[in-house]
Amino acid sequence: MRANLITINDEFISFQQFCQKSKLSQREIALIMEPLATALYQNKLKQRVVYLLVFVFLATLIYYISTTEVVSWHLSAIGRVALIKLLPIWNWQHLKYERCFVRDKVDFQIFLDCELCEINNYIDTEYDIKPTELDDHYIKLHKAVIVKNAITNWKIPDDFDTEWIPCKLSSNFLTGPADMGRILEKLSQFKNSYFVHFQNCDRQSVKFFRMFAPKPPVLPTRLSPNQYSWLLLSLDYNVSNYKKIELIEPIALIGQLAGYNYFQLKPRSNCEDYCQIIEVVLEEGEMLIVSDLYDLSYRPFPEGENVAIILEMHN
């Protein structure tokens, strides 16, 4: 191939020398060479089109392969491991609570109808309520409510996949990112007093939690399956300050599976001057429904073991 290119180049040089000896002008030479130049340009254009089509095909193929459950799970696992390895070089942990890398001056938590919560200073308790009534009287009005006998089929999760890496992990016995194996190992060592809570953002862990905390039948069908879930664990942890839960979706279900937890609902953004902070104790077997009108915080009951699961979902 290289020999053919050298031969073609020598012939072009010889032709150019012939044209110069024949005293042809540059315009005349350009007219003679025009058919060849046009053919070369068209051939180069065809090559670029072929390269573009091949690139689009490969990009589409890679995209569809990456969206398959098995591949996407492995890619996310590799990404999490890479981020952990990157910590000694760049401490990115402060970004894990941000919804985007670029900050905007716009407040995304502005509520125009603060009247919805200005007279709410307590939380109703419902024992037997229909999904339509729950939707119309509470969820659509951003009013928190406790529902009894709604999570009778929920149970405490067990047999965790030790390779899962939860999001938004907070505890008194761990620092930095950790997988479930390290969390369970450390948890077994703190038998006197501890707390830990984390969000399940991995697709597999979310599916796993759906087996232990399925969507309650009392909810309206328009609500999606849970997109994220949380586990709150504590034992004899006596503190006075509340721990904030960084929710993402607009609807949150808190189910108390064992013991008690104190929950605090603080009106968000511009409604905090109109509406009151609400505090409530959630007992075993109760479910609390909260909208994104409120920031959610909790404080463990200071005695015994306390277990709660939070499901996040959207309309």
Score class of each variant (00 low, 15 high):
R2S: 07
I8M: 07
I8P: 01
D10Y: 05
Q20T: 13
Q26P: 08
E34N: 13
T38D: 10
N43S: 15
R48Q: 15
Y51H: 07
L53Q: 11
V54E: 08
V56W: 00
F57M: 10
Y64R: 12
S66L: 02
V70G: 02
S72K: 07
R80K: 14
L87F: 01
L95K: 10
F108E: 13
D113P: 01
D124F: 04
E126G: 07
D128L: 05
I129V: 09
H142C: 12
V145H: 04
I146S: 04
K148N: 10
A150M: 06
I151R: 01
T152N: 13
N153D: 15
K155V: 03
P157R: 01
D158V: 07
D159P: 00
W164P: 05
I165M: 12
T175C: 02
P177R: 02
A178L: 06
A178S: 15
D179S: 08
Q189R: 12
Y194H: 14
N200V: 09
S205F: 05
V206P: 01
V206L: 00
R210P: 02
P214I: 00
L223Q: 04
P225I: 01
W230M: 11
K244V: 15
E249R: 08
E249A: 14
A252Y: 01
L257K: 03
L265V: 08
K266P: 01
Y274N: 14
I278W: 01
I278D: 02
G285F: 04
S291E: 10
S291F: 02
S291N: 11
D292C: 08
Y294W: 15
Y298L: 10
R299E: 07
F301M: 06
N306I: 04
I309C: 04
E312L: 03
